[in-house]
């Protein structure tokens, strides 16, 4: 039952002299503040979502670091340290894991009644979801920075090389990596919210989404070059959004075109990777975001049942 009007209508001030409603940006800000406060109260949650990516980073470099050298130089045509090669995958994994917890937060809010409380309050509907998403993006930025720093520490211990051997494109590249991480996180955040709204149970949502993370990561360009994978895995990897996220970050880190599955050549250098990869991700963001908004609008009307 769609009894609730959409966000735009919700933001229009009523014809009443007793208006207490806030502006749209103010609504976004108060929602954002509440979610950040919740995260600060539970710092363990954020650290927990960094735990798996960090374990992967440390174990993979320790185990595969010595034997992947030739495969990498064959695939990329240059000598690349496995740490540098792996960091993009770990960043995308971090984005996946933290996006996965977004839906859990939504179900929690439904279970403790805050979701309904917000629906009855004169708060803009769009602001409700935008504020929450922004808080998640801010946490993701912190997490990506932590992973980038940790990666350089590992590289420095291994080779003692300067930062330029870590991120080829420098500081602008580091900012670009954060931006790609955000663009990548949006579709999976939307996906985890869709799962949450369908399942409506915090623990099942968490489990379902987390279970998807691992196969998706392995059947992609995350840990080894696609060209060295078996044929069927290559086919799956081509359709796997993670390949595009990882390759985009990797292109920025290595300063070269690494996307080979659709081998775009119209642009120059890393743009041959970035433009098609970001195009794929933006389309996914719009599609999944659209479905999530549809489900949320429905939930706004029928959640109360």
């Amino acid at each position: 039952m769609n009894s609730i009007d959409n966000g735009t209508a919700g933001g229009v001030a009523p014809v009443s002299e007793k208006t207490t409603g806030n502006g749209f940006l103010r609504d976004v800000w108060i929602i954002l503040k509440r979610w950040l406060l919740k995260s600060i109260r539970n710092p363990f949650r954020m650290l927990l979502s960094l735990l798996f990516p960090i374990i992967f980073l440390v174990l993979f470099t320790a185990v595969f670091g010595q034997i992947t050298g030739s495969a990498l130089s064959q695939a990329l045509g240059m000598n690349v340290n496995y740490i540098t090669y792996l960091i993009p995958a770990i960043i995308i994994q971090t984005a996946l894991v933290s996006a996965a917890s977004s839906g859990v937060g939504l179900v929690d809010d439904m279970e403790n009644g805050m979701f309904e409380t917000m629906l009855v309050a004169p708060v803009n509907r769009t602001a409700m979801f935008l504020g929450k998403a922004l808080s998640e993006i801010m946490l993701l930025i912190v997490q990506i920075v932590i992973i980038l720093v940790l990666g350089y520490v590992l590289l420095w211990v291994d080779t003692g090389g300067p930062p330029s051997t870590y991120i080829e494109t420098g500081l602008a590249g580091a900012l670009g990596i954060i931006a790609i991480g955000i663009v990548f996180a949006i579709w999976f955040t939307a996906f985890s919210n869709i799962v949450a709204l369908v399942i409506r149970d915090a623990e099942s949502t968490s489990l379902t989404v987390q279970l998807l993370v691992f196969p998706l990561l392995f059947v992609s360009s995350a840990f080894v070059p696609v060209s060295s994978l078996s044929k069927w895995v290559q086919v799956v990897a081509t359709g796997n959004p993670i390949t595009y996220g990882v390759d985009a970050v990797r292109a920025v880190m290595l300063g070269q075109d690494v996307l080979t599955v659709p081998n775009v050549m119209e642009f120059s250098g890393i743009w041959n990777t970035l433009i098609p990869a970001l195009a794929v991700l933006v389309v996914l963001d719009i599609v999944f975001g659209g479905i999530a908004v549809y489900y949320l609008n429905n939930a706004a009307g029928s959640e109360v049942q």
């Binding site: 919700g10 409603g21 109260r41």
Partner: peptide, 23 residues
């Protein structure tokens, strides 16, 4: 036609207690 004005002018307490446990 004017749900926003209604929402601003009422207080509603649901049957299930609704408070944020983290705040």
């Amino acid at each position: 036609t004017d749900p926003q004005a209604v929402r601003e002018s009422i207080g509603y307490m649901a049957q299930e207690t609704s408070v944020d446990p983290d705040l």
